[in-house]
């Protein structure tokens, strides 16, 4: 809690450029993945499920749509936001942009865990595109941890 307070009030260690690059690239991968699924969702195209059979089952399950919005589209918005927030932070030095990105990455990681649980236990099929998204979300989460650690260790 004290660390968090310090984080908000004290000046930060400069964000290293490799961090910005990694974060942006991972967000971009997640964005492309989600975009592909969104296009397939709306055009009704056949998703290429060559890694695990039954990935269509995941994409056609009730869990693929939340309040009438396909999850893939939520993914597009999320990864786009993650990318733009990082650019906003890096180019304009906006602090809340990075904090929001970190908060988002934690949320997305927890959400991904729930989705993997659903795939394994409820739908009993895996979808490679969804797993890729879980991987990018996890990477963003790890990057967030690394960043937070840099800030607290330096104090």
């Amino acid at each position: 809690m004290k660390n968090l307070k310090n984080l908000l009030s004290k000046p930060w260690q400069p964000t290293p450029s490799w961090f910005v690059l990694a974060w942006s690239l991972v967000s971009l991968v997640g964005f492309l993945d989600a975009t592909y699924l969104t296009i397939q969702h709306y055009t009704g195209g056949n998703v290429n499920c060559n890694l695990f059979s039954g990935c269509e089952k995941v994409l056609a399950s009730p869990y693929a749509i939340i309040w009438g919005v396909p999850l893939a589209l939520v993914g597009v918005a999320f990864y786009l936001l993650m990318l733009l927030l990082m650019v906003l932070h890096w180019e304009h030095g906006v602090r809340w942009a990075l904090l929001l990105g970190i908060l988002g990455s934690v949320g997305a990681w927890v959400f991904s865990l729930v989705m993997i649980y659903l795939q394994l236990m409820v739908i009993e099929s895996l979808c490679q595109y969804c797993l890729l998204s879980a991987l990018t979300a996890t990477t963003l989460f790890i990057l967030s941890l690394v960043w937070l650690r840099r800030q607290t260790v330096a104090e």
């Binding site: 969702h41 009704g44 195209g45 269509e56 089952k57 056609a60």
Partner: peptide, 10 residues
Amino acid sequence: PLRGIHQNAQ
């Protein structure tokens, strides 16, 4: 079965 768009196709 168009599993991508029909939940009960399969």
